[in-house]
């Protein structure tokens, strides 16, 4: 099928402002948008800058606004977003500074990630037999959703609270915190909850569900944030 990619370009080395450029491409309906972008980059205009790596939705590099909403370019097939002869718009994520074209500065995103202590803390003695700590399948299942997160930033940059104020810790960091708060091997629940109880913590969430809709890993992000709020309000992790 023949389609047009309308891409928002911005190279701060050369441009004053972002501008749109259109590229005609011919693709198979079952190809990924990433394949179409590669066609542009490899055979039409090598100056197009984007991040990508694994190309099948695991590494989380190629989050961008596709037809206005956050998706991974490697996880959408052309046939699902455009008809023959149609146009696909591609823009960088919203709320983070654009470095070049579709590439944004992720440092603030990772700073929020680091702020929630994203690691298991447990200084208790290890099992004497030198083996694993025990955990029931139910306890393991309790935090399963959060472990799927690939830190692609699709949720955080879909969040109106984050757009308007990027000091908000954001959905991704809360999902990460949830993963540890609800892991019964962890012993730093209260410290982590204290971080999220601050002014720029979970209370900035307005239950918009953009995060849940944007998540390429189908994590029920808003639900996990809700569970953290509940834990804060009731003192029960359940």
């Amino acid at each position: 099928m023949k389609v047009t990619l309308k891409i928002k370009r911005f190279n701060p080395e050369a441009d004053q402002k972002p501008h749109w450029e259109s590229y005609p491409v011919e693709v198979e309906p079952t190809e990924r948008l990433l394949d179409a972008l590669h066609q542009v980059k490899w055979f039409q205009d090598g100056t197009l800058a984007l991040r990508r790596s694994c190309a099948h939705g695991i590494c989380g590099s190629d989050t961008m606004r596709i037809n206005g909403g956050n998706r991974l370019a490697c996880k959408v097939l052309m046939q699902d977003i455009v008809k023959d002869g149609g146009t696909v718009t591609v823009e960088p994520m919203l709320g983070l500074k654009v470095i070049k074209d579709l590439i944004v500065d992720l440092e603030p995103f990772f700073a929020h990630y680091r702020s929630v202590m994203p690691y298991v803390v447990n200084d208790e003695a290890l099992p004497e037999d030198g083996r694993e700590r025990l955990q029931s399948p139910e306890a393991r299942e309790r935090f399963d959703q959060g472990t799927k997160c690939i830190l692609c930033a699709a949720c955080t940059t879909a969040c109106p609270s984050f757009w308007s104020n990027s000091t908000y810790v954001g959905p991704a960091a809360i999902v990460q915190a949830h993963r540890f708060i609800f892991d019964d091997r962890d012993r730093a629940t209260d410290e982590r909850l204290a971080v999220l109880n601050e002014q720029f913590g979970v209370w900035r969430c307005r239950t918009v569900f953009n995060c849940t809709e944007a998540c390429p890993r189908d994590i029920p992000v808003t639900q996990l944030i809700g569970e953290v709020k509940r834990a804060l309000a009731t003192g029960r992790v359940e």
């Binding site: 209260d190 909850l193 002014q199 309000a233 029960r236 992790v237």
Partner: peptide, 20 residues
């Protein structure tokens, strides 16, 4: 509702109170 455990929730901040 998933089975729970009690934790030492941090003291409520102004934002907690307002939210509630």
């Amino acid at each position: 509702a998933p089975a729970g455990r009690r934790v030492a929730a941090p003291p409520k901040t102004l934002d907690t109170h307002i939210w509630q």
